[in-house]
Amino acid sequence: MVTLDQPALSQAEPRTTSRVQPLLRFARRNTAGILFLLPALGIFGFFVWYPVVYGFILSFQKNAFYGVPTFAGWSNYRFVLHDPLFWTAWRNSASYALYGLLIGYLIPIVLAIAINEIRHGTGYFRLAFYLPVIIPPLVTAFLWRYMYTHDGGLINSLLSVVHAAPQPWLQSPSTALPSLVIVTTWANMGGTVLIYMAALQGIPAQLYEAAELDGANIWRRIWNITLPQMRGIMLILLLIQIIATVQVFTEPFTLTGGGPDLSTMTVILLIYNYAFNSGNFGAASALSVILFLVLVVLSLIYFGITRRLNLGGAE
């Protein structure tokens, strides 16, 4: 779109006689804009763009923290790839994402549809399901640790009231990861519910009316109209959730520290341990770069989908 304040640059200037004038014009047109961009350019330059590039450099250096950095070639990458924990961590991060989808992906969709159909208390439900999102993750983590306590914790106590066997929750390699996922899901699903609810309200009423006239019952309407209409947003949130789960730090760090027996040692925790437990910043940087590449690929998929949906959208 062309607006008054933005004539095309190539436009001829018939009355110009001097060669300086176009320069002045150019300056007048751009100076303010560039000045206004400077704070953001500075901040992004120093704290995002530069670190991203620097991370690649660090991954090829040795001993960058406590001495003079030296070129290390691929040795940091070799170290990371040969570390038996490398695959453990990736397997755990992948399971974290998978459990996250199993436990946490469908619940918000179901909740959103249900709340949207309820004729009473919509505001309350929206609020109540969103509430955990604003609790500081550290509080969430310790609150759940308190409830997961094996002897006398709320959950096992309630189980014993109904004569069910106590569960080990965070204390067993087979249940620790799912238990963490329950915590992350509890803490994060509220936002997703709101987004789905908004998407539901964007579905045109005529579609339902037409379907009803065609004799489609409620289940068929959900299956044939609601879900297809939400397909795009469901796909996007699927990817966002995967990317977000891989980045979770506070919960495993504070609740299990990677245990028991490495069953919750995620890629992020491993990076943290390399850097701050062993002081091996080269290995930490190398693993960060690998993680970075994996997540960028996922992000590219996400943006690809967003773009495609957008082209097909209302614009």
Binding site: S172, P173, G258, G259, P260, D261, N277
Partner: peptide, 17 residues
């Protein structure tokens, strides 16, 4: 301390199974 960190999973391991 790095050694202790490496040994934690060992103790946890024998206590979990």
């Amino acid at each position: 301390q790095a050694m202790y960190a490496a040994l934690d999973p060992v103790v946890q391991g024998v206590l979990t199974s």
